[in-house]
């Protein structure tokens, strides 16, 4: 009996303390990913973290449900440990530097590129991925087909670069050569108005495709962001004065409600900035 016990113990030892290859473990190729910073997500990803190369698709329809907050811990880690670029290809809005800095991302490693045409976007993506000079490439490619994603996948493997594509949720219906596909939803247990169950926000996700595993059920990732924390004395600020409500009525007649964001927001800004930069460049040349 004593012998049996010791046998059992040594088996346990073998299983826990050594890197024994087990077919049941999903990170069977010993890939070590970049930790996501969220234990729930880590537990379901091969390599216990984000991959360090290949295409990862994040599918979601609504802006602002936490698609970037899901990535910031990993991006912060990449920017702190590597000297390579963190490339953003045509982001829909300005990635706000104070928030990026607060998330721990080194701003000097950030490079933003705004190609004007879809062809240029693909060219930028492929060159950047294959160049080995970016640690991660975040892209909002708009319409992109399977063939193009396959090229990006090959390029990202070649350049050892992690490519994240943000795509609309309806892309989930079609197959994609991406290595990892995750769909994001607003949290199901939507907190009712004024009575928030938690002061933190969260996002629901479902892994549609991963290496070494089936698609997962819908899971929930909590963020440590205190965004839902309600300021205690807030109700006193509900200043529903008469003039405002009349104004809002007038406005509603004037401005039809704009339900969606205009994606050219960024372009307008950069036209001004371009001018400024051209001036700056001209000045530089004069100095030289």
């Amino acid at each position: 009996m004593l012998r049996d016990l010791s046998k059992n113990q040594s088996l346990q030892l073998l299983l826990h303390d050594t890197e024994l290859w087990r077919a049941s473990s999903i990170d069977c190729d010993f890939r070590q990913g970049i930790t996501t910073g969220f234990p729930v997500l880590d537990g379901h990803l091969p390599g216990a973290g984000w991959p360090d190369d290949g295409v990862t698709e994040l599918l979601h329809d609504q802006q602002g449900i936490g698609e970037l907050r899901l990535l910031t811990p990993a991006l912060a880690r990449l920017s702190q440990t590597q000297t390579r670029w963190l490339l953003w290809v045509s982001p829909p809005y300005i990635p706000y530097p104070p928030a990026l800095l607060k998330a721990g991302i080194d701003l000097t490693s950030i490079l933003i590129v705004n190609p004007k045409t879809a062809n240029d976007t693909l060219w930028v993506l492929e060159k950047a991925l294959a160049s080995k000079s970016c640690s991660a490439v975040l892209a909002w490619p708009g319409n992109i087909n399977e063939k193009q994603i396959r090229r990006l996948q090959v390029a990202s493997k070649e350049g050892n670069t992690w490519n994240i594509l943000f795509r609309p949720a309806k892309a989930a219906e079609r197959a994609s050569p991406a290595e990892l596909r995750i769909q994001l939803f607003p949290p199901k247990t939507s907190p009712s108005r004024h009575t928030s169950p938690s002061e933190h926000t969260s996002v629901d996700f479902r892994i549609l495709k991963r290496r070494g595993g089936w698609s997962s059920e819908i899971l929930n990732v909590p963020f440590e962001d205190r965004l839902n924390q309600i300021t205690p004395d807030f109700p006193s600020l509900s200043i529903a004065t008469e003039d405002i409500s009349t104004r809002s009525l007038r406005d509603s007649a004037l401005f039809q409600e704009i339900p969606e964001f205009e994606s050219h927001d960024f372009d307008v800004l950069f036209e001004d900035r371009e001018l400024m930069e051209i001036h700056a460049m001209a000045e530089d040349n004069e100095h030289q």
Binding site: P92, A240, S245, D251, D265, L269
Partner: peptide, 15 residues
């Protein structure tokens, strides 16, 4: 994490 280039006007009801 995202900033709009130009603040967008929002309608309001009851303040």
């Amino acid at each position: 994490l995202y900033l709009l280039n130009k603040p967008r006007f929002l309608l309001s009801t009851n303040g």
